[in-house]
Write a protein that binds this DNA or RNA. Sequence first.
DNA 1: TGTACATCAGTGAACGCGCGTTCACTGATGTAC
DNA 2: TGTACATCAGTGAACGCGCGTTCACTGATGTAC
Lengths: 224, 224
Amino acid sequence: MSGVRDRFRMQMQQEVKDAAVRQLAEGGPQALSINAIAKEIGVSGPALYRYFAGRDDLLTALILDAYRDMTTALTAAAEPAQAPEKRLEAVATAYRTWANAQPHRYRLLFGAPLPGYDAHDGTLVDAAQKMMNVVLDVLAGFPHRAAAPQGDLNGQLTAWARTHEVADVAPATALVGVTLWSRLHGMVSLEIERNFVSMGLDPDLLFTSEVVDLVRLASADDAQ
Amino acid sequence: MSGVRDRFRMQMQQEVKDAAVRQLAEGGPQALSINAIAKEIGVSGPALYRYFAGRDDLLTALILDAYRDMTTALTAAAEPAQAPEKRLEAVATAYRTWANAQPHRYRLLFGAPLPGYDAHDGTLVDAAQKMMNVVLDVLAGFPHRAAAPQGDLNGQLTAWARTHEVADVAPATALVGVTLWSRLHGMVSLEIERNFVSMGLDPDLLFTSEVVDLVRLASADDAQ
DNA sequence: TGTACATCAGTGAACGCGCGTTCACTGATGTAC
DNA sequence: TGTACATCAGTGAACGCGCGTTCACTGATGTAC
């Protein structure tokens, strides 16, 4: 195992993915072309089939990489030593920073679906959950809240929280996590499409204002 | 003016747009193909150039229509007779309902940019502002808030609010409007990409929970 | 250490497809005298 | 009311391009005896 050829294979696989990401950054979302990637790394089209079964396979690899990458960034931002409020701020900021640094990859994760590609495959959902774990971990640092979500939502959130390895996530905390994510995504996705700029508003200031509210949401004693 | 030929032209233009929207709904985002549309309405490809200068021209028409359509839906939901809280709830729900009924058109408005197409052309920004006017109009029905946004944001929001025809939009109200939109977009865009479903969570319940918070945001006395 | 063989990266041609757009043209239809 | 003309919707062929994928093949490189 891990002979010379294996190592070469992995190196090439990485090179292909790098070229793909670079091309994604320049050419827009659906500029992901096997032939163009091959050209960029100085190889003929069909050669890529040595490394990926096809376009979808490459796409899956890119998405998994992106999830991993973002999870790493969020984890690094959430230094356990800090106060929960500071950690939450840091994670929120890291989320936005990551998205702004590479909007094309962010779109790959949460943007419009690609034609004929199932973005909710099991492997991908797992990767997304790992990302959410970072958020939940930070939220667990806040004081426990008394009120539980009402009705079906309570059960659904409990079930969802159970699939995460982080222990003891109360449904109320899970709800805060989802809401938090939703609000972050709202801000960030509008920002990367330049919607705020076209309104003459500074995304930095809007984001800061929203983060204040997010911290308040996480700190609130009751969820109702 | 408005002779037989003119009326025929407009009728055909509408037919082309209808086919385009239908095709957008089925074939995904970038399935917008001149040739395919032509085929659907039983005409040869180049014939469409009688009605639209090209792909981008058609796209612009579709986006403007979508803005107009959504604005109409929101306006209808915001019956002036109701209490401001009820109006806000109704507008938020209408926003979500519209997006869920035609996710492809929602993506056209706020989703990923299309390659080589400028989504922030003047005409489009105008159309977006008209949509926001409905939200601002509803927010104006709430009691005035004392605190103003801090620093540059205050000036930017004042300037932005001035471009809207609705009179007397305080910068604090404008900020609530933008925040509201951002949160709605977060929920709705995650929902239409099936992200909540893949987590086992009911989007209805999550949305209801977020709307409660939106009403609270609009009703709060201070913005800090 | 040397030789025979198996492995496998990469090639070039080809398949069938679809795209937006241009061009010269036909033929119907409305309009002006 | 009838005729001549201008307008304009729509056609079919063509341009040049790019796409993902398959296939039979070459040639280098690692491996086993």
